[in-house]
């Protein structure tokens, strides 16, 4: 992770615009939500949202939260969609209880057609009864699971 200086470090130019533009367009996350934070780049296109003030320190392991990976397109992280889920206003798939259980254990699910009405293919926020579960990829009527393996859980109380 780059860590020099006390201000955000992001490259190549335009990445910040690309990430914030995507989050606003796809999820309705307004840019003003990120005013208090800085963006930081790590290897493999990973983009972190972290504090604005980062002292020049050796041995920094991580700054802030991994919010997206940028490889031509932007892939939002489950961390981000869980953290700001309440502020997401579009491209939300409301899961049934069975679908939420499947999602939490790492499985894909086929949402009811009403649940994806008006939602174009792409990344979505999976929600259950108002709780933001994480990121999914809507493709050909299926929600593909984007949950990192370490976060998977066999839920017993939902």
């Amino acid at each position: 992770m780059r860590r020099r200086g006390t201000s955000e470090v992001i490259s190549p130019p335009g990445t910040k615009e690309k990430v914030f533009g995507y989050l606003e367009e796809r999820f309705g996350l307004e840019r003003s939500l990120f005013d208090d934070y800085g963006l930081y780049m790590a290897s493999k296109g990973r983009v972190y949202l972290g504090p604005r003030r980062v002292p020049d320190l050796p041995k920094i392991a991580t700054i802030g939260l991994l919010i997206a990976r940028v490889h031509g397109t932007v892939k939002p992280s489950t961390n981000l969609l869980q953290a700001l889920g309440k502020r997401v206003s579009r491209n939300i798939v409301n899961a049934t209880r069975e679908q939420a259980l499947a999602y939490a254990r790492g499985g894909d699910f086929k949402p009811d057609s009403a649940a994806v009405d008006g939602i174009g293919d792409g990344y979505v926020l999976v929600r259950f009864e108002g709780a933001s579960l994480g990121c999914g990829l809507l493709q050909k009527g299926m929600v593909k699971n984007m949950l990192p393996k370490a976060k998977r859980l066999e839920l017993r109380y939902i």
């Binding site: 972290g50 504090p51 320190l57 041995k59 991580t62 700054i63 802030g64 939260l65 370490a150």
Partner: peptide, 16 residues
């Protein structure tokens, strides 16, 4: 892992 899960944004992790 725990900071990510909690949705913490304002943290810098150092290993010193």
């Amino acid at each position: 892992f725990n900071l990510e899960k909690a949705g913490v944004l304002n943290t810098v992790i150092t290993n010193r």
